[in-house]
């Protein structure tokens, strides 16, 4: 579904990630300590950061595709952004239909777009709030609005850049569980950068551990946790910490 070869990217001419290569055919969790380049990698995949190397989505090179073609296949759900001007929930989600609307001669939403928005709002349990201003929503509700906006893009792959930060546990699990179902039903994929190891492991069996701008290990999540590779990267006994947490609360 997504092939990455020798990818390097960074900011102001300084590479943050170096020579990353990986094959993504289903859900994937990316973990690693702060500053290891997880978000930079996602931004390069989302085509919002210039990169060296090559990325292919469903066999097509990014270089041969326009931004709109890539955005039809790949969407991104990020950490919460500052809101300068307020919109209704419905209008905000409708923005995700931008490329579908712009592909039409009149560039106006049709009943198909409205249905897609209402279905997405129903899926994230916000249908009753559709006319509410987004500035009046809680953090969890707002992130679900952005999730709905991502869904109505109808992408093949959704990139998650720590979208559940600042959300309560129930919200975090609901969003991840919903996305897993969405990916499974449509033969789609989720590529998630998540700080919470438990959440990352619940998203996918495929785990990539990054460290200092490179892939430290790429493989089966269970094997990686048992191998102790996470301990090296995080410089602590991750499995022991998780066991202790589990025992304390069970």
């Amino acid at each position: 579904m997504l092939t990455i070869k020798n990818l390097s990217a960074g900011y102001g001419g300084v590479d943050v990630i170096h020579n990353i290569s990986m094959q993504i055919d289903g859900n994937l969790s990316i973990v690693g300590p702060n500053g290891c380049g997880k978000t930079t990698l996602l931004k390069a995949i989302a085509n919002i950061l210039p990169f060296k190397g090559s990325i292919l989505v469903e066999g097509m090179h990014y270089t041969s595709m326009k931004r709109r073609d890539i955005s039809m296949k790949i969407a991104m759900l990020s950490q919460m952004v500052g809101i300068y001007f307020t919109y209704s929930v419905f209008d905000t989600v409708m923005m995700g239909r931008y490329l579908h609307i712009k592909n039409r001669i009149l560039s106006t939403p049709t009943s198909e777009d409205k249905t897609a928005v209402l279905q997405a709002l129903k899926a994230v349990d916000l249908l009753d709030e559709k006319d509410k201003e987004i500035t009046k929503l809680s953090g969890g509700q707002l992130q679900r609005v952005f999730l709905a906006r991502t869904l109505v893009q109808e992408p093949r792959i959704i990139l998650l850049d720590e979208p559940t930060n600042h959300l309560d546990l129930k919200c975090q699990i609901e969003i991840i569980e919903y996305l897993k179902k969405w990916a499974e039903e449509g033969n789609r994929a989720i590529v998630g950068v998540l700080h919470d190891i438990n959440l990352a492991l619940s998203l996918s069996d495929h785990l990539v551990v990054m460290n200092k701008g490179e892939i430290a290990v790429d493989g089966n999540a269970d094997k990686i946790v048992k191998s102790g590779m996470l301990n090296q990267v995080y410089e602590m006994d991750v499995a022991q910490h998780m066991r202790e947490s589990f025992e304390r609360w069970s």
Binding site: S78, Y98, Q153
Partner: peptide, 23 residues
């Protein structure tokens, strides 16, 4: 006025706009 959609989307920031497909 032809850019009303882009203007709406860009108020959420450039990264968001680009991932939605706005150049």
């Amino acid at each position: 006025s032809r850019y009303k959609w882009e203007l709406d989307i860009m108020t959420f920031g450039e990264d968001q706009a680009r991932t939605i497909g706005v150049n």
